[in-house]
């Protein structure tokens, strides 16, 4: 139950969800207000298109809010929202068969031969001029390099170092074992380090 007398923005996510379940529109709006920026940022950095990111973010919130009665309070609300957001972005990337570039091959490859065999060549990244300009404006080269990571690495590195989520929460969001999440983040950082090496020189 929500403590009386406090403004909605001071309530925890679980308390706001309880209010939303009572049919209070203010509570629905508060949940969107809390997560619109992180969700939009994550999806934008995944799909690299502002309009599309807006559509996918809207889709995410509509799914979340229309299914608010099925949310299980033993899980973090943020994990649930990010899980749906990530699924929306990944589904879109799969449908569009966007580039999934990696510098060091499949994350499942364990031997050097397998890594070499599964490594992809860097191809031209087909961004529109507008998207390119946005990318440069939105954080420059590092944004571009993140965009070249394979989607699994991208989600992990964004959730870990941009949103500050714990390894455990990322594992819950992505439905992956903790060890796999650590491996993805480690490999993503390696790729970013290599790709940004020229900046240091």
């Amino acid at each position: 139950m929500t403590p009386p007398g406090r403004p909605l923005m001071d309530h925890t996510d679980q308390e706001v969800v309880l209010e939303a379940r009572k049919g209070k529109e203010r509570a629905y709006r508060e949940l969107v207000r809390r997560y619109e920026r992180p969700v939009f940022s994550l999806i934008f950095r995944m799909v690299r298109n502002r309009e599309l990111a807006e559509d996918l973010s809207q889709e995410t919130f509509i799914k979340v809010l229309n299914a608010i009665d099925s949310y299980r309070p033993e899980f973090k609300f943020s994990s649930w929202v990010f899980k749906i957001a990530n699924n929306a972005a990944i589904d879109h990337l799969r449908r569009r068969e966007l580039d999934t570039l990696s510098l060091d091959g499949s994350p499942h490859a364990v031997t050097p031969e397998a890594i070499e065999a599964t490594a992809l060549q860097i191809s031209d990244h087909q961004e529109s001029p507008l998207d390119y300009v946005q990318a440069t404006e939105l954080g420059g080269e590092i944004e571009e390099v993140i965009a070249k990571l394979r989607p699994e690495y991208r989600t992990c590195i964004l959730l870990r170092h941009v949103d500050g989520r714990s390894y455990e929460e990322i594992a819950e969001i992505l439905n992956l074992p903790l060890g796999t999440v650590k491996t993805y983040i480690h490999r993503a950082r390696n790729e970013l380090r290599i790709a940004l090496e020229h900046l240091r020189q």
């Binding site: 969107v32 207000r33 992180p38 939009f40 934008f44």
Partner: peptide, 25 residues
Amino acid sequence: LVAALKRLPHLDPSPGFVDRVMARV
């Protein structure tokens, strides 16, 4: 690298985003 990643800003959707979501909820 981690410091640079942490400095990346959160991005805003266009104005009226909440209203557009609420219209379909």
